[in-house]
Computed example of a mutant assay.
Amino acid sequence: ACKKILISQRYRLQAMSLIHESLSYSTTYEKVDMSQYIKGIANNIQKYTHHTIVLDLEPCVLGMSDAMNLGLFLNEAISNASEHAYAKEVKGRIEVSLKYREEQCVLRIKDFGRGFDTNRSSHSLGLVLMEDISNFFNEGNMMIDFEEGTEIVFSFTQKKNT
């Protein structure tokens, strides 16, 4: 139990440190290239999981605060899927996509695992954290679908900053 907590804390810290690394290579310190940031988060988690993380990312630039919140949200979702979606002996697949349509950003995290017990997991720290983070966004909306695994779709309004 302690090991799991420490690993999840490490993922959170790495997600935050990637923002600072991303900003240091940027020409502006207010905007974050989300494709690069998400790739960094996924690559960090990929080092510690045997599941395959597949990315489908469209260009999107967010302000630093939104980028950090979205990174923490994504980190929780991928970490939860990596840890809980599949039996230990199964090598699973986790899909992550970021789409931008008419000022609407849509982040999707999908696994094809066993899903989770909604009675037990509805108050998990990860889900509570993701729900709290979604409230920081303009028209933030989180939906979870449990058919054929678990799919988390988080959408919010964002004017294009490219």
Rank of each mutant, 00 (worst) to 15 (best):
R120D: 09
N135G: 13
E131K: 15
E83M: 09
S121Q: 09
R101V: 11
T118V: 12
I144L: 13
N80V: 02
D66Q: 14
V61E: 06
N141E: 05
D132E: 13
H123E: 14
P59K: 14
L127W: 04
E95H: 08
N119G: 13
K99G: 03
H84F: 14
M130T: 08
F136N: 11
D111A: 05
E83Q: 12
M142W: 01
S121P: 03
G126D: 05
M130L: 02
L127G: 07
L72I: 11
D132Y: 10
L127D: 05
K91D: 10
S82F: 05
F112V: 00
S121K: 09
E89D: 13
D117N: 14
K99S: 08
N75V: 00
D132H: 11
L62M: 13
L129F: 09
H123W: 07
Y100E: 11
K88C: 02
E89Q: 12
E83I: 09
T118E: 12
F116S: 08
E76T: 02
L127A: 08
E103T: 11
M130I: 03
S121M: 12
K110D: 00
N80G: 08
S97H: 05
G92M: 00
E89W: 10
D66K: 12
P59W: 06
E131P: 03
N80K: 07
V106H: 10
A85H: 04
A87E: 13
I94N: 02
I133Q: 07
S121A: 14
V106I: 15
S97W: 01
E139Q: 13
K110P: 05
K91S: 10
Y100C: 09
S134E: 06
K110F: 04
G140R: 00
S122A: 11
K110M: 07
E76Y: 01
